[in-house]
Every structure is written in C-alpha cells, then in structure tokens.
Write a protein that binds this DNA or RNA. Structure first.
Lengths: 210, 210
DNA sequence: CGGGGGGTTGATAACCTTCAAATGGGGTGG
DNA sequence: CCACCCCATTTGAAGGTTATCAACCCCCCG
C-alpha cells in the first residue's frame, strides 16, 4: 500500500549524533525541524545571566523546532546518543499544505506539548521539591511503561543538573530529595543511571498529581 | 465578498457573562470551545489540597477549551465581565475537517500558546519574585499596546491572588514587590485597577527577558 | 453602623539556595 | 593493569528569599 506511506518519509534525512551535541540554539534561523527516532534530546531557554530552564526532554516520536517564528525560541542538545530525522522547513511546509493528514498530526503534537507544558507550569509554580521530583519520576516511569512489561526499573539518562534545571531546583536539592526517597524505601538507584520504583503508590501520593 | 466570511461565525453563539463566573471545570466533558470577544478569562489547574496555578489570562481573540482530550484539563472563569463566542465541539470539528484555513488558524493559535507556556516555564522555574512581577507587567503593557497609542497606563483587572497564583508566589509577596516597584519609582498604581509604567527601561531590565 | 473581602504591612519561620568540601566512578595514560 | 585525574554526585553548614501567620487598613455594600 504505497498510498498510505508517510509523506514525511520522502523529505526526511537521517541524522545520528552522539551525546551532548547541540542541534540548534535559541535565536538561530529556524530552517530545520527534527523528529527523534531514538535517544533523548533536551530543549532549554536561558536568562541573560546564565540561569537555565529546561522546557522538555524529548524521546522517540517527539518533534522539535516546530516554531511558527522565523527563529528558534529555545536551544536543543542531545542528552544521549541520538538518531534523528531532519526536515527542511520549507519542504515540510509544502507537505503540510498539501496533506491534511500531516497537518492534523502536527496539530495533535502541538496540542499535546501544550498539555504537558501546562502540567509543568503547575509543577514549577506550586509543587515542593519532593513533589516535583516524584512527579518527574512518575512521568519517566509512565512514559517508559510498555504494554505487557511490568518492569519498575527505568532509565534516567540525564544528569542531576538537567533534572534540577527541568524542575526549577538546584543540583543539591535534587540530590537531597533523591536521597530522602532512597532512605524511605520509595526508590532505588541502580547502575547505568537507572532507577527502580519500589513503591509506586507512595511515589504517586508524594507527587500530588502527575 | 461572502465567500471570505469566517466559517466559524456560522456555528458560533454569543454569550455574555459577568465577572467571576465559571465557564467549565477541569475534568468536565469537553463539549464546548470558546473564544473571547471582550473582557478577561483566567484558566487554572488545582492540586488536591487546593493549591492553584493560573496557566493563562485570556483576552480578545484568544481561544479556550481546544482540548484534544475528552475532558477539559483546566478550569476557566471570567475575571471581568466578558463577551464570548461558544462553539459546540463536534460542529467545530466538522468545520476544521472541511476547511484547511480554519485548521491552520487553530494550529497557529496552539503553537502560539505553546510559546507563551514555554516562556512562563522559564519565569516560574528560574526568576525571582521581582523578576516575575516585572515580566508580568511588561507583558500586560505589550499586549495592551496599540499602534499609535503611547499611553503607559494599563488595566490590571485581576486581583492580587490571581497574580500570585499566576506567578507562583503568595499574595503577600506580590504586594511587597509591587510596593518596592512603587517606592523606587518604576510604576504607579492608579484608580480602577490601572497601573502606570513610569520607567519602561528599568522595568524591562528588572524583568530579565520578557 | 456593622460586616466582609481585598489589599497592605510586620514578624517569624521554613524551605531551598549558596558556598564548601568529601566521595565516588569512569576514562586515560603510563 | 593500575594509578591518577577529572568531574558528577553527594553531603554538610550557613544564609537568604519567600512563605506563613497575624494584624490592620480601606472601601464598598448591606
């Protein structure tokens, strides 16, 4: 069934990057759009004095660079080694204009990102350090969860500084909160930057909503 | 030119509400979508214990209720008396499916809201109380600014509690920060909940980015 | 005149940050 | 193969920004 082939596949170009590589920076000309095939990407904004807010961790299936603006409004870097698909913006625009299905898909993606952003606003504005961290771990666990699998150990490839800048905390506070969860038997830190949730119910209770 | 008439106008129904009226609540069935014609609407999320995060103040031209989900993911209430246009979701969906122009418009709206949400994440996660408040005032001023007009006095119809819950602060901190801006000659509080920016440059400097 | 709600100011306390130092683990070079 | 170094992580102590608790003011409205 060639007719149902993904029209995006025609114009996409594969791209492989190792860890901690920049994809683009805030204020660059936004001429490319990416989708993540594997690995993890972080996107962030900076204040003039260097304070950083990570506004998202992107994984397989996520898009980035879908800016309406002429320039990117955030910077993007790989967290782990990544496989990406790169699209040129004007080519993508052409496909969007001619294919309502693609348009719907991108709208759904933007709408979903908006939902996540609003959830994150609640977290950043009103949750305590422990609640933030538990919410974060809970999301990691839920995103990781595949039907059928019942593993409670999840990969956490980003460093403490990334977690801190995602949750609006400092590295030290993230560490201390993790330690507290560890000593109270809620989680366990494993090798390979993995984490095991020993008590999902308590984790959810501590998170006060996702 | 009837052909260029807004297809949304056909299915919209006018609606007038006084101040502090609820439009819908989080978890309600999302069967209606609204656009704001005049006045101001606030949308918010709650934690189980009552902590509130306002995730947006909506004004003329803004849409709300554009959820992908079957239920609303936030609550909406009027801040001031409002004129709204109400659409039934399945009717709106029909128009979207048949009219690429409308689809593009809604995508642009969602994308713009996402940009604002990401800017707000930076504010909530990384800015100090004064920076938050200055950013907020700056946005109010910029949104209010009409070409040609050079007034520096802007309406601020929401109460202190709303501002606090929008910026992730308490009422007291908002008050104190406003007082500080007042005594340092950056702003002036006027009657009718209006505010005058006496020193835009200083306000912008204190805000550290919008 | 009394009541009530929003706003402001003050005092105290808590949470989180900042500054500092110790620990540990991974990679490289000898 | 081991030693060393670098850097991320962890832990500790002190401090600060903001929250909490409380009182007061002011204006509107019943």
């Amino acid at each position: 069934m060639k007719a149902t082939a993904d029209p995006l596949a025609r114009i996409g170009r594969s791209l492989v990057l190792e860890k901690d590589q920049g994809l683009f920076r805030e204020a660059d000309i936004a001429d490319r759009v990416f989708s993540v095939s594997s690995g993890m990407v972080r996107i962030h904004k900076l204040l003039p004095d260097g304070r950083r807010q990570i506004i998202g961790f992107l994984q397989s299936g996520d898009f980035l660079g879908l800016s309406i603006d002429a320039t990117y409004l955030y910077s993007a870097e790989t967290v782990t080694a990544c496989a990406l698909i790169q699209y040129h913006r004007h080519q993508l625009q052409a496909v969007i204009d001619s294919d309502p299905g693609v348009q719907r898909r991108l709208y759904a993606i933007a709408a979903h990102e908006l939902i996540l952003a609003q959830e994150q606003m609640l977290l950043l504005g009103r949750k305590t350090a422990i609640e933030k961290l538990c919410s974060f771990l809970l999301r990691l666990a839920r995103r990781q969860r595949r039907p059928g699998t019942e593993v409670t150990t999840i990969p956490m490839p980003m460093g403490r500084a990334d977690i801190a800048d995602y949750l609006g905390l400092t590295v030290e506070t993230v560490c201390r909160s993790l330690t507290r969860l560890k000593t109270t038997g809620v989680i366990r830190l494993c090798e390979n930057n993995r984490i095991e949730c020993l008590d999902m119910a308590r984790l959810a209770a501590l998170a006060q909503s996702a």
